[in-house]
Design a protein around this nucleic acid. Structure first.
Length: 888
RNA sequence: GCCCGAGUGGCGAAACUGGUAAACGCAGAGGACUUAAAAUCCUUAGCCGUCAGGCGUGUGGGUUCGAUUCCCGCCUCGGGCACCA
């Protein structure tokens, strides 16, 4: 123990402004002071620590620069910052960067509304958000900051796009795509939620457009397979969402010959068959009709000349006009119409009718389904509605099926009947056998279908990364912009008008250029990229954001993979799939090490922040201050209290982080976010809970002052039993906090453990009474508590560390190490049960054997009472824990 | 409908590998300090019962000497997917 630690010296060792050590801790003065000190000392630079240390790359999902920090951000960033600070203290080199997901529609909407250029608006917002992040105490290495709307960032994205185009990974295709009329742009599949646009919640419609796609499906299988590698390191929820989203299903493609082949004409090529996709080839003998999508290319042609043309055309047009929401609706009535055409079931040789059905989707499988009404519920209902025949081909193990008596399809496994050579085969086995049989005859083959579609990346908007392609007005088609002309930047002189076309497409000169191949006139692509393109690789660029000689710096990449990624699970099927895909693709290109197949080793998805909301029948959602004694202040009607709604402006239940930090300090706000719930579950906001955290910090501050006011123990020693007990508690706490923080990512229990240590230290000081001295045990307990809490409440702990007479920064101090010899219990409580019920406990050495414990247990009056007069039939003994006596 | 996850005091939660259920915090009750209040400190605290004791982790079963923990069924809530053939 340092001899400088005496009561009078500690007063001057701490803050310069606080002249009375007993003063209440004032975070408003202390926190900015330490924030400056950290910055001046350059403590958070990833290169500040020696290169011999192990690396740790930690990041949070970067924010869209909306201009405001909300509680969700605060929770997200607090969680990350704890580990960034913690790992530094544990001796790691830490890369902890922050950046800006800066392209996106809000900037463009602001431009339309307020006439501010999106770039100016975005830059202003970034400035407005940086201050609060510093004020929160975040320990980012700002030298790695990146901003996706900066040409020095997106120039590389354009290079990646061109490479994708060269490798066939980016292509143009005409398709029915999702169009959001509100945002006036197309959307990718995963950006449509319940038929609504993920950004503006307006209804999405289908449009036939030619767009740019990224061939993510080429990696569908690997993205699916590698989920196994992430098992246990990513939340199960996210992995199962991704598995669902990819939606792999094994089955067969089967060709059904048309009874009347279609000859080539102006509407298409000659066709003699229709192919279906099915996951149940075992039921092929039971296919009694076929259903195809209204969008199927043959839909109208099949009806031609059958006399059913008018009816079919009317039906097809009606279905095609219906939007996605309607077609997906719960009450959507299944309907169909007979085309007049027949195909031949390749198994039975029977002619079966072809229907157009409104529930068959064109963009899954082949857009045509073999209908097996006896064994598929949808087909069953359709068959009953249109009086189509059923054929039972699978029998359940325990009964027979009578077609007339069936009121539902039998969809489970069973044994094949009425299936020719396959009779008696179990249905699972029959899937393979029938597929093989079809294959031999050239009528089908085994295939795999994925629900995952190629990623539609073009957007008809201004504020995004320009797609670096030009379309030759001559005959060269689409060509990439030569590398020497990159980046393709956005024009500044544009006008933003509501609801209209993208300013890029209406700009008088911007799109005019020359073809890089024939030097003739060409037009630039005026669509920009989906914002998710930027976030698909930003973590790679973080490692060397200013690298100029290429897309990625090999040296910087030694930071990869990201050791821990913290963010919300709402990105499970969007950003987190795209980022995994990009990593695999860039690795295949050699831009990343070959063995770097996954970007994020560990993923922590934090829960939402919730708070009660109030609602009045006439005035809708109310701010808390509009409610008085449970009634609406305006009209006096009862205000309904809605428990724990997502914090949102529309529910009027948001808490402003900066207001809160002004009142309680950043440490308190951080501590509450970490203490009130485990990081991955929802956080229920509670003002009282915040008060509680603030009180705890105050208690810790007072505990330190109280300890420092005591005279030093003469020889500093601490060997009495109470001292040893306190030291044991200290080291057990170190062990527990270390595993909770770094392995279990359970901050709430880590904080609880530190609180226990503080309580016990306070109790010890009280127990010492008048003659209390500051001995080694107390000093060790307090210093440990301060260091263990340092990642969570960095400012206060820094202040206390200095008060305790230490020279350097707490955040640069070494993480406490548990001495197992000191932490070991010398006495443990062994529970004594009689017939499984607790009847007493005995205090023994941890390794006391059964005989010792039994002897002590039998001496216990209460235990005796329950065993008296009965024979002990059996005894179960768990060393150091429990003795269970079974008596009869 | 299918796939995940969760249900524990008045509240947020804890219990790590099947071994003392409710640590830690909030709210509550009582007390100390104070002229008083705030702040702070101390005590108390699952439920029933006067006690002995009994009952207690959504619910009904099961396995076990012993179950919040494992297995089966059911209920409720949250999230995801969904005419996906």
């Amino acid at each position: 123990m340092s001899s400088s630690l005496s009561a009078d010296q500690t007063v001057s060792a701490g803050s310069q402004t606080s002249d009375k050590p007993g003063d209440k801790y004032d975070p408003r003065e202390v926190e900015p002071r330490w924030q400056r000190a950290w910055q001046d000392a350059g403590l958070f630079s990833s290169s500040a620590q020696g290169s011999d240390r192990p690396k740790f790359f930690l990041m949070e999902m970067f924010p869209y620069p909306s201009g405001r920090i909300h509680m969700g951000h605060v929770r997200n960033y607090s969680i990350g910052d704890v580990l960034a600070r913690g790992y530094r203290m544990r001796g790691y080199r830490v890369l902890y960067p922050m950046g800006w997901d800066a392209f996106g529609l809000p900037a463009e909407n602001a431009a339309i509304k307020a006439g501010v250029h999106p770039r100016i608006w975005t830059e202003k917002n970034i400035d407005a958000m940086k201050g609060p992040l510093v004020r929160l105490g975040q320990s980012y290495d700002w030298s790695h900051e990146l901003c996706t709307c900066d040409p020095s960032y997106f120039v590389h994205e354009q290079r990646i796009f061109i490479e994708m185009w060269k490798r066939g990974m980016a292509y143009r295709k005409g398709a029915l795509v999702n169009w959001c009329p509100q945002c006036a742009t197309v959307l990718a599949n995963e950006q449509v939620e319940d038929g609504l646009c993920w950004r503006c919640q307006s209804g999405v419609v289908q449009r036939e457009l030619v767009q740019w796609f990224i061939r993510i499906t080429a990696y569908a299988q690997e993205i699916l397979d590698d989920i196994a590698k992430l098992n246990g390191k990513w939340p199960d929820k996210v992995l199962s969402m991704q598995t669902n989203w990819i939606g792999r299903s094994e089955g067969a493609r089967i060709k059904f010959a048309l009874v009347q082949p279609l000859s080539a004409d102006e509407s298409g090529a000659a066709t003699s068959e229709i192919e279906v996709f099915t996951t149940r080839p075992d039921t092929l003998f039971g296919a009694t009709f076929m259903s195809i999508a209204a969008e199927h290319p043959l839909a109208l042609r099949l009806a031609r000349g059958t006399g059913r043309e008018a009816e079919v055309t009317a039906f097809v047009n009606k279905v095609r006009a219906e939007d996605k929401i309607r077609r997906g609706a719960e009450d959507y009535v299944k309907e169909g119409v007979f085309t007049g055409a027949y195909v031949v079931n390749p198994a039975t040789g029977k002619q079966i009718p072809v229907y157009i059905a409104n529930f068959v989707l064109m963009d899954y499988g082949t857009g045509a389904v073999m209908a097996v009404p006896a064994h598929d519920q949808r087909d069953f209902e359709f068959a009953r509605k249109y009086s189509l025949p059923l054929a039972v081909v699978i029998l359940p193990p325990d009964r027979t099926l009578e077609v007339a008596a069936m009121d539902a399809a039998y969809v489970d496994a069973g044994t094949l009947v009425a299936s020719g050579p396959f009779d008696g085969t179990p249905s699972e086995e029959a899937k393979g056998r029938i597929t093989a049989w079809l294959r031999e005859r050239g009528q089908g083959e085994q295939t795999v279908s994925y629900r995952l579609r190629d990623w539609l990346v073009s957007r008809q908007r201004y504020w995004g990364c320009p797609i670096p392609m030009v379309e030759c007005q001559g005959g060269c088609g689409y060509q990439p912009v030569p590398d020497s002309e990159l980046p393709v930047c956005l024009p500044e002189d544009v006008e933003f008008v509501p609801g209209g076309k993208s300013p890029l497409s209406t700009h008088p000169t911007w799109a005019q250029t020359t073809c890089p191949v024939c030097k003739g006139p060409a037009r630039r692509e005026t669509d920009t990229m989906d914002g998710f393109m930027e976030s698909s690789w930003y973590f790679l660029r973080y490692t060397a954001p200013n690298y100029k000689d290429g897309i990625l710096d090999e040296k910087g990449l030694s930071w990869m993979p990201v050791d821990l990624y913290v963010g919300g699970s709402e990105h499970a099927t969007k950003h987190l799939i795209y980022a995994r895909f990009f990593t695999k693709m860039l690795s295949d290109w050699g831009l990343l090490p070959k063995d770097l197949r996954e970007p994020f080793s560990r993923l922590l998805t934090q829960g939402m922040v919730l708070k009660d909301a109030y609602r009045c029948a006439t005035h809708d959602y109310l701010y808390p201050e509009e409610v008085q004694d449970g009634t609406c202040k305006q009209c006096g009607q009862p205000a309904q209290q809605l428990r724990q709604m997502k914090m949102s402006k529309s529910f009027r239940n948001v808490v402003e982080p900066m207001t809160l930090i002004d009142r309680y300090g950043a440490d308190t706000v951080r501590l509450f976010c970490l203490f009130a719930a485990p990081p991955d579950s929802v956080l229920e906001w509670s003002e009282a809970g915040v008060e509680g955290c603030s009180r705890f910090l105050g208690r810790l501050h007072r505990l330190v002052l109280r300890a420092l006011s005591l005279p030093l123990a003469p020889d500093g020693s601490a060997t009495g039993p109470e001292d040893l007990a306190l030291r044991r508690k200290t080291h057990k706490t170190i062990r527990r906090v270390t595993t909770d923080l770094f392995e279990r990512l359970q901050y709430n229990t880590a904080i609880a453990a530190i609180m226990e240590l503080c309580n016990e230290t306070g109790d010890r000081l009280t127990a010492m009474g008048q003659g209390a001295v500051l001995n080694f045990a107390v000093r060790e307990a307090i210093e440990s508590a301060v260091l263990l809490l340092c990642p969570m409440a960095p400012h206060l702990c820094e202040e206390l560390w200095r008060l305790l007479g230490n020279q350097g920064f707490a955040v640069a101090a070494t993480w406490p190490i548990c001495d197992e010899a000191i932490a070991r219990d010398h006495q443990v409580t062994v529970v004594v049960q009689v017939n499984g019920k607790k009847r007493g406990e005995v205090l023994v050495a941890p390794d006391a054997d059964e005989a010792t414990v039994t002897a002590l247990a039998m001496a216990d009056a209460n235990v005796n009472q329950h065993t008296a007069g009965k024979a002990v039939k059996k005894a179960v003994f768990v060393k150091g824990r429990l003795l269970n006596l079974v008596v009869g």
